[in-house]
Design a protein around this nucleic acid. Structure first.
Length: 419
DNA sequence: TCTGGGGTCCTAGGACCC
DNA sequence: TCTGGGGTCCTAGGACCC
């Protein structure tokens, strides 16, 4: 019998974070929008009940939604990141082995202390997270991560479970699977779901009872693993230590269309500087540097254009100046006049550890100190040092965030005041 | 007017090597 | 007449996740 695993996630995470500091919004529908206030990326229970769909462009629902009293916020990742950290800290106090899976989810290995009493354990987790952070979590328990995910789905779907479901019992599992659509399974997205349906696989039970060999031949090894996990055979361990990143991407949709090369260059320089910071935080150097630009794929009235260009550095680097230096010739390779660009970005890849760098014979000296000082200043919260190529203005126009909530937990000036 | 950002893994095919 | 087999690395594309 494999060690039981719990999947714990925060209900309506972003929307709950916003409401945490705005008790006056209790009972009101809340949605949080993506960057540029584009799509709906999180919904409160009330907004879900109104039928607001995940990922829908906000302008399509705005009129009706606001007429019905709906509230919206721009994404406040500083706030969500900090609240996430608090939740994870509580979870780490409840289990010695925790895998942070996303900003609002974690897998916990359940030790012997709690064996046989896992519903109570789940309830204890909920109570403690609520008391310490004010956020409500759901808990799904099973012998594999995929089953823990499924249990978590059930805990959300049926409130009478009290927010905790244990799927270690096979009879219970079979009952749930028989009534759960196959596309609720972790790893089955829209496309696979549609192909399964076509093949007569409608429920999770249908998938579990399918022939493994046939499924592997038809859909590949990922689907085979999913089936094994649904049968209770673990195919992956908990990833307690996150794997080193294999690529770093910094990209944004623009608040306004970009039509001149100089502006595009500044935007890319801005992303590149950010990518360099992330690279150094990972303690890595990179060899591959790419930039990409594209017009909107949604605008039928304009021709679409998008392309990317990559260069391989002779010597791996994490020096922002070297990275910035690549932009001009990469942009030359793909820039076309006459288009209204909607998005641009940079990518870094082919990483090597920082400590065993091959020295550059012709290098005039190490730049480590400069980058270190730069990062320290920029992380101090006291001010920002920028490269000239990023432009002198702060390009606030690059991203729209019309309704950004305060940094309640991350800025002294924004601390909520108790009355 | 208005459609996110940042990742992962797998597979197939081509280049290249011995 | 007749044209290997096995391996690696890289890239592009497709699928998925939150």
């Amino acid at each position: 019998m494999p060690t039981p695993i719990a999947l714990v996630d925060v209900n309506n995470f972003y929307a709950s974070c916003e409401r945490l500091f705005r008790p006056d919004l209790k009972g009101r529908p809340i949605v949080v929008l993506s960057n540029n206030d584009g799509c709906v990326v999180a919904r409160s229970a009330e907004a879900k009940a109104m039928g607001i769909k995940m990922g829908v462009p906000y302008f399509k629902i705005r009129g009706e939604y606001e007429a019905k009293g709906g509230i919206w916020f721009s994404s406040n990742y500083g706030l969500y990141g900090d609240m996430s950290h608090r939740v994870m800290t509580v979870l780490e106090s409840m289990s010695p082995r925790v895998e942070t899976y996303s900003i609002d989810e974690a897998f916990l290995e359940l030790g012997e202390t709690w064996a046989g009493n896992l519903i109570e354990y789940g309830l204890a987790i909920r109570a403690k997270v609520l008391q310490w952070t004010g956020l409500t979590v759901g808990v799904g328990i099973g012998p594999t991560r995929t089953l823990a995910k499924l249990a978590n789905y059930a805990a959300k779907k049926w409130p009478q479970t009290g927010g905790v479901v244990d799927l270690r019992d096979e009879t219970r599992r079979a009952k749930l699977m028989a009534i759960t659509p196959v596309d609720e399974v972790w790893g089955v997205g829209r496309r696979l779901g549609a192909r399964f349906n076509q093949q007569g696989i409608q429920t999770v039970a249908d998938l579990v009872s399918s022939d493994t060999k046939t499924m592997r031949a038809r859909y590949g090894v990922v689907v085979e693993r999913t089936i094994q996990e649904l049968r209770g055979h673990p195919c992956a361990d908990l990833a307690i230590e996150p794997d080193a990143k294999q690529q770093i991407v910094c990209s944004r949709s623009f608040g306004e269309r970009v039509t001149d090369r100089t502006t595009m260059y500044q935007a890319l320089a801005d992303y590149m500087a950010r990518a360099g910071e992330k690279l150094r935080a990972e303690q890595r150097c990179c060899r591959a540097v790419s930039v990409f630009i594209r017009t909107s794929p949604f605008n039928g009235n304009e021709p679409y254009y998008g392309d990317q260009a990559t260069t391989k550095l002779a010597v791996p680097t994490n020096d922002t100046r070297v990275l910035l230096h690549q932009i001009a010739h990469l942009l030359d390779m793909i820039w076309r006049d006459g288009y209204r660009y909607q998005k641009g970005g940079v990518m870094l890849g082919q990483f090597t550890p920082i400590e065993n760098q091959q020295g550059d014979l012709f290098d005039t000296g190490s730049n480590d100190r400069l980058m270190e000082v730069l990062d320290k200043i920029n992380n101090s919260g006291l001010g920002k040092v920028r490269f000239a190529s990023q432009g002198l203005d702060q390009h606030e126009w690059l991203m729209k965030r019309e309704r950004l909530s305060p940094g309640y937990t991350t800025r002294w000036e924004d601390l909520p005041v108790a009355k």
